[in-house]
């Protein structure tokens, strides 16, 4: 068995129990929020880990893009694109959770809260990344353009986040340096979900890159046959 599949298996074996433990913690051990939105607050335990993981995914895209720019090795393009794909899926789910939270907390399906807005922009941004990829046929040209766009996109994400921080936001701030009103059960559940999501991301990333490699091999074989 190739090392990559071993890594995939190991990460999956880590992710599954962490995820289940996170879910059990979320539903059975964490205190019920009573002041504002009640049971719906439980979204938080997977919402924030997903947000952090999508940030990590886009960071991997940036690193992959920069590595491609420096080395021109196409394997980095595969890592960058695979990470962007997972980041995009996580961001879309995050947005969906945000919408559910907004419905519970503020009574509306959508509010132009700066953070919701900024994640909508991020989703559109990385959708554009894939539209660009699909409209270039040559693999080297696709890798080149994707690396350039992957780099500038991450910078735009930073600017979008800054511009939303300057604006006043209705988004709740749960963890902050000055407020430690978080109970241990909440923190542990959160951490379980966080590491579970990280491991899940790693597992999908590894298998996604493998799929890209296999696809390339098939294309090469097709070319050989003619």
């Amino acid at each position: 068995m190739k090392t990559r599949y071993k890594v995939f298996l190991a990460l999956t074996i880590i992710a599954v129990p962490l995820f289940i433990a996170g879910l059990i913690g979320t539903f059975y051990f964490t205190p019920l929020e009573v002041k504002q939105i009640g049971f719906n607050q439980k979204i938080f335990y997977f919402h924030v880990p997903m947000a952090i993981t999508s940030g990590v995914a886009f960071l991997v895209t940036l690193i992959g893009s920069l590595a491609y720019i420096v080395t021109r090795d196409e394997k980095y393009d595969k890592w960058a694109a695979s990470a962007a794909e997972i980041g995009l899926v996580f961001s879309a789910m995050l947005l969906l959770m945000g919408i559910l939270w907004g419905r519970a907390a503020w009574g509306v399906w959508w509010t132009w809260d700066p953070r919701l807005t900024s994640y909508l922009v991020v989703v559109l941004l990385y959708m554009g990344y894939f539209v660009l990829r699909s409209s270039v046929e040559s693999t080297t040209q696709r890798a080149r353009y994707s690396a350039a766009l992957g780099t500038v996109s991450y910078m735009a994400v930073i600017f979008t986040m800054i511009s939303t921080r300057i604006l006043r936001s209705t988004h709740p701030v749960i963890f902050s340096l000055h407020n430690s009103g978080v109970e241990p059960e909440m923190l542990y559940t959160f951490l379980l979900a966080l590491f579970g999501t990280f491991a899940l991301f790693g597992a999908i990333l590894v298998i996604r890159v493998s799929i890209e490699n296999i696809r390339e091999e098939i294309e090469d074989l097709k070319d050989m046959i003619g």
């Binding site: 941004l125 660009l132 409209s135 766009l149 735009a156 979008t160």
Partner: peptide, 14 residues
């Protein structure tokens, strides 16, 4: 056709 799709999300902060 591609330019607006790529550019509009990128210039949101500006």
């Amino acid at each position: 056709l591609l330019l607006p799709i790529l550019m509009l999300p990128l210039i949101v902060p500006a």
